[in-house]
Amino acid sequence: MKNNGMNFRHLYYFWVVAKEGGVTRAAERLGVAVQTISTQLSLLEQSIGKALFSQQGRRLVLTESGRTALAYADQIFLLGEQMQEALGEADGAKIRLTVGISDSLPKLTAFRLLEATMRLERQVRLVCYEDQFEALLGDLALHKLDVVLTDRAVRSGTTLRVFSHQLLESETVVVGAQTLAAVYQGGFPRSLNGAPFLLPTRNNTLRGQIDEWFEQNGVRPDIVGEFEDNALLNTFGRRGLGLFFTTAALASDILEQFGAVLVGPVPHMRQQFYAISNERKIRHPAVDAILSAVHHGVLSAV
C-alpha cells in the first residue's frame, strides 16, 4: 500500500497505548473513548500496511513491526517534548544542558566538571542521564544529549559523527580509610600484598591497568569487592572495608567526602577524561564553561 503521509495523531495514540500497556489505560490517560483509540490504531496500521499489535489472551503485545515503530516513536515524541521545553526556555533566563554520564566515570569527577556550569551568569538547567558508554553515544548521535562525559575516547573508525575532547589526564593513587591506610603505607607498593581491595568490575577501562600493575609489582591483593558503580565502591571504601584506586586530581575531595587518605601513588597508571560532542568545535555555552574550568584547573591534572 502506498504511504500518503504519516498521521502523527495516530502515531501518538499508538505510542501511548504501547507505553500504558493497553487501550483502556491509554484512553483514560488521554481522556477519550476506547473506541476512538481503537479506530486511530486501525487507521495507522492501514496507512503503514503492518500490524503493530497482536492479541494474546486479554493483552495487546507488540509485533516486530510494532517494536520498530515504538523505537522511532520514542525518538519523535522525546524530541518533541525537548523542543517544547527549549522553546519555552528560549526567551527565559535558563540554558538547558542535557548530559550523558558514563557509568564508569567517577561521580566526583562528574560533579566537579558540571559544577562549572553553575557559575555562569545565565542559569543552567541540568538534565543528567547515566548509562553505558555505547548507549550514550547512540543518544548523542540522535541529538538526545548535548554532551557525554566519560573516561574514554571514541574509537577511531566509528560510523557515528561524534568527536572526543580530552579534558584532562591524571595519575592514579591508592587510598583508603585512615586506620586501614596506616597499615599499608610503609613499604608501598610491596606492602599491598594480601591487602583488602575494592576494585571496579572488568568492563571498566581502569581495571585492566590495575590488574597489570598488580602483576608487575608482584602484588596479590585480597579482592573483597568488585563494583560497577563507582559511587558504591567509594561508599564501601569510606567504611574501611578495603583500599581503592582513584584519580590524583580528586585526592582532596576523597579525603573530605570519604575520609580516605593517600596510601601511595601509581604515576604510570594514567586516567583520561573526555567530553564527547556532535561537533568538532564546542558551541554550547555550558559545555564551553566546563572546558574553560578544566583549563583553569578545576581538576588539577598531574
Rank of each mutant, 00 (worst) to 15 (best):
E64S: 04
L241K: 06
R190I: 01
L97C: 05
N3T: 02
Q56E: 08
L105R: 03
Y72E: 12
N4G: 04
I290L: 14
I276L: 01
H296P: 09
K144F: 12
H10K: 13
A286E: 04
L126A: 03
A69I: 14
H284I: 00
H295P: 05
P221K: 06
N230Y: 08
E171K: 11
F111I: 11
F77H: 14
L199W: 08
K107T: 02
K281I: 07
S104D: 03
D103N: 12
P200I: 00
D139K: 14
P200N: 03
L199H: 00
A26S: 10
A116C: 08
E20Q: 00
P221Q: 03
Y12H: 14
F244I: 00
V23G: 11
E171H: 09
A195F: 11
F214I: 12
T68W: 07
L30C: 14
L255W: 05
S54V: 14
N230M: 11
K19S: 08
E64C: 11
D131M: 01
V124C: 10
V99H: 01
Y13I: 02
R220V: 14
T205Q: 04
V147A: 04
A141Q: 03
F236C: 02
N204T: 04
N3S: 09
G259R: 05
R207H: 09
V17N: 13
Q178I: 07
R283M: 06
A182V: 04
G208M: 05
L167N: 00
V174P: 00
L255P: 07
R119F: 15
A289E: 07
L198V: 04
M269D: 03
Y72I: 14
L97W: 09
D211Y: 09
